[in-house]
Design a protein around this nucleic acid. Structure first.
Lengths: 181, 181
DNA sequence: ACTGTGATTTGAACAACATACAAACTCTGG
DNA sequence: CCAGAGTTTGTATGTTGTTCAAATCACAGT
């Protein structure tokens, strides 16, 4: 069901991700979706969870633990960043933010999702021997968030490659030694 | 009128910033607001413009052109970053992002507003003799965006001071030499 | 003054939406 | 076969932003 929501999101964008429309796709009623997810906020959060799980699976499949740090870092950033304008994953993030502001009870679950990548990056940095991995991970993830918005919103002078360059610039020189494919 | 919208936003938050409610405050009808602003998106954009103009005025009043770079940079960041959880200026930014995604015609005006601070920071950096001011400004503004989201959304381990530390870390050592008040 | 014309302003109507809810249905343990 | 909890549906409700025709206003030209 979440998968269908996802496809709907890709096909028709944010505007058409409505309970009625989704109900039509899944052959059920909007009422049932509410019963199931509690609210549209709940549904969105669940979609986000699902999409993050997908991404995490891809990440676990592709991350090469023994590869050099530079390669793993690049891969991390590429996975994290949006895949161009209107990337569905970031569509949901951007849609969720204002809702977190309106609804107190979304804060906790939101933060949990947010933390995952920060922790993973911190793990990467720790393995590479960074001095304050937690703080550096915070910094890099914040940067990636900002860059991701620019990409997802379609700002002309921002691309994944440019973003990657910016991200690398935050690494201490000794960590990101060689160039990578 | 935009000022009243602003006060309404501060008092009651995002959820109550509705055309009907605003109309009640300004003693006019929701229909008139639509006639005037074209759409709610238009209103929001105008509110954002107004708030940015306010901020810009404060910035121009307080920036000391002859002060050392470190002080001017800190001031810039403090102005730019949200003033704690639910800062109204960032409330509007966060509300605008999903709308930019839904409505193509918002992209241009959005980008114009976005660029202002980037250009100003680039100016600061140029004056300080940075090597690639435009790119560095891009990077720092993206970082500030990411940090701002964390602050505005009320993530516990993020404060303006912490954010400031992160921002400073992006500067080449020779630019940010001394500590500042 | 009068009038006509275009810009405002209004209020009611509309459509789309998330949500609430009661009724109908389904399944399961006794 | 039944009772009752858990699902599912369809309809109703309340709130949105938006549309629109009518009313009002401002004011230039005569």
């Amino acid at each position: 069901m979440l998968e269908v929501a996802w496809e709907l999101l890709i096909e028709r964008g944010l505007a058409d991700l409505t309970l009625a429309e989704l109900g039509r796709r899944v052959d059920t009623s909007a009422g049932h979706l509410l019963y199931y997810f509690g609210s549209k906020d709940g549904l969105l959060l669940e979609v986000l969870r699902w999409s993050e799980a997908q991404l995490w699976a891809r990440w676990e499949a592709s991350r090469a633990e023994e590869a050099p740090f530079a390669a793993r870092f690049d891969l991390f950033c590429r996975q994290f960043l949006p895949n161009g304008l209107g990337d569905p994953r970031w569509l949901v993030w951007i849609e969720v933010w204002p809702r977190v502001l309106r609804a107190e009870e979304l804060r906790r679950p939101y933060e949990e999702l947010d933390e995952v990548w920060r922790d993973e990056l911190a793990r990467l940095l720790t393995a590479a021997g960074a001095v304050d991995p937690a703080s550096l991970a915070r910094r890099i993830c914040a940067l990636l968030d900002g860059l991701a918005i620019a990409i997802a919103l379609g700002e002309e002078d921002m691309s994944v490659e440019t973003a990657l360059t910016h991200a690398r610039a935050l690494l201490p020189a000794e960590l990101y030694a060689g160039a990578t494919a």
